[in-house]
Amino acid sequence: MKLIHLTDLHLVPPGAMLFGFDPAERLRKTIERINRDHADAELCVVTGDLTDEGDFASYELLRDVLRDLRVPTRLMLGNHDSRQNFLRAFPDEPRDENGFVQSVHESSAGRLILLDTLVEGFGHGSLSDDRLEWLLARLAEKPNVPAYLLAHHPLQPIGLPHFEPWNTENWRQIMPQIAKAGNVRHIFHGHVHVDVGGTWSGIPFSASRGVAHQIIPDFKRRDADFVEDAPAFDIALIDAEGVLVHRFEVNDRHVVEVSASGLVPEGVQ
């Protein structure tokens, strides 16, 4: 399976700017690159912060921009989003029995479980008891099928002090239960605006720095420097042997040499 992971679009209403740039234009350039190089992907998942302030006009803009994407797409919510306005713009997105925007997508690689970690009005995330029960039930109903979790908030800290107040608040409770289920192969998340990967409780995870603004990682500071790097997205190649995550920047790079297949360019040892 070829999976595209987008995150943190932070769209603003048409004509508005964010930190001096247009997030929708950055998304358009990202879509152009995906259509050019990765239109064969099975699915694209956007892990939240679709908008910067959760306003309906920004969701309408998102709906219009996504019409150009030639890959089936699923949308998720982050702390900058509004469930009500999102569902007004995207009424067909699945919800669970409690109204949370979370669901299972059956893919060629297994089950993609899309989680709703939004706590309206706050920056941190949560898998409250009802959401956690829903997740554990999904993992238990097909225990022999590989599962891949997608969330906006990291489900365990990533080692950056800036995000300590903004993690999933009950991660100490949820991660042991997720690990105990035994069938989660990878966790994809957004929120942090940095490239990061590793393992949580033995489960591999990855996050992209996102399409809108990025953050310079710092292991000591609790504040953060926001920067405007090139938009970025991840491609996950998933099969029975593993999960490979590749990072892509949306920029024009200077090619210095074209090497024939299997050959080393002249002058390179």
Rank of each mutant, 00 (worst) to 15 (best):
T117I: 10
K142F: 11
H152G: 11
P23G: 07
P231I: 07
K142P: 03
R221T: 13
P176F: 06
F86V: 11
P176G: 09
S103Y: 13
P143Q: 03
D130R: 14
I216S: 07
V145E: 00
S103H: 06
W200C: 01
P23H: 12
F205Q: 07
D223W: 11
F226Q: 07
H246M: 08
E25D: 15
D22V: 15
L3E: 13
D64A: 14
N85W: 01
A89D: 01
M17T: 14
N170S: 02
K220I: 09
D8R: 12
V250K: 01
N85M: 03
E32C: 03
E53C: 06
A212S: 14
H191E: 04
R221K: 12
G110R: 12
F188N: 06
N170V: 09
T7W: 10
P143D: 05
D223R: 01
D55W: 14
G20H: 06
I178V: 15
V71H: 02
D239Q: 13
I235V: 07
R253K: 10
R131D: 04
F21S: 01
R67N: 04
I238C: 07
S126P: 00
S82H: 05
D8T: 15
D92V: 14
A230L: 07
P217Q: 02
P161H: 15
G242N: 00
K2C: 02
E120K: 09
V255H: 00
D40R: 06
F163W: 13
D116Q: 10
Y59A: 06
V192L: 07
D223F: 12
D239K: 14
A224K: 10
A57G: 02
V194Q: 04
K142M: 08
F86P: 08
